[in-house]
């Protein structure tokens, strides 16, 4: 960690836990939940957001002194939209199946509140290197939640991870299924994602009681 001072390390580590963008700052839930039925899609989505937020934060930070503050929202939207188009085209070229699964949700990274939130709150007032770390940190915090949700939903919902049948074959009744275990179809439907995130928030706030809100 010779490259990073202690302050810089905190920029990355804070959003992973006590200042998590999803569970604490309530940002970026919009495009996240619908694609977490599978681990694969969750990871690709997380990587896309890491790219967009990391690069976007640097770009905004570089031009922060020349953006007129009245039109900064439009400028920010254009920067994000350009980066998202890059991500979308790359996905379509190299991972066509996945880009079908993610469908319009790649486009919705543009209006992901995490991105605008970090641009406004951090990149507009900090140097490019720190903005880069902040972007990576927040996107990682977002990705961690996505991956946790994706992991549980895919494991409990269809008994697979990355499409591999880790719990045995539900039709041939091997592995766990031999003992009468059944997949929980409830985990596959979209609203289950909300409930899983609710439970993550519950666990996190039970461990760190300072985060508890007023009723």
């Amino acid at each position: 960690m010779a490259l990073l001072s202690k302050k810089d390390t905190n920029l990355i580590l804070d959003p992973l836990a006590d200042n998590n963008p999803i569970t604490i700052q309530v940002l970026g839930i919009c495009s996240a939940l619908a694609i977490t039925a599978e681990l694969n899609a969750s990871i690709v989505m997380a990587l896309s957001v890491i790219f967009v937020l990391g690069v976007g934060n640097v770009v905004i930070s570089l031009i922060r002194n020349i953006i007129p503050s009245k039109i900064r929202i439009i400028v920010q939207l254009i920067v994000v939209a350009t980066l998202v188009i890059v991500v979308d085209q790359v996905l379509k070229a190299f991972a066509y199946e996945l880009s079908k699964t993610l469908a319009v949700f790649v486009g919705l990274i543009i209006t992901n509140c995490i991105i605008m939130g970090r641009f406004e709150a951090f990149a507009l007032g900090n140097s490019p290197w720190r903005s880069f770390l902040d972007g990576i940190g927040n996107a990682l915090g977002y990705g961690v939640i996505l991956i946790i949700v994706g992991f549980f939903r895919e494991l409990l919902g269809s008994g697979t991870l990355f499409g591999i049948k880790v719990l045995g074959d539900p039709i041939a009744k091997t592995g766990l299924y031999a003992f009468g275990y059944e997949n929980n179809g409830f985990m596959i439907i979209p609203p289950a994602a909300l409930i899983v995130v609710g439970i993550i928030i519950w666990v996190q706030r039970s461990r760190n009681t300072a985060l508890i809100e007023e009723n």
């Binding site: 569970t23 609203p191 909300l194 609710g198 928030i201 009723n215």
Partner: peptide, 15 residues
Amino acid sequence: PPLRGLGITFIITGL
């Protein structure tokens, strides 16, 4: 207490 605010809103929305 840990569910107050955001947590319970998520779960209600899910339901």
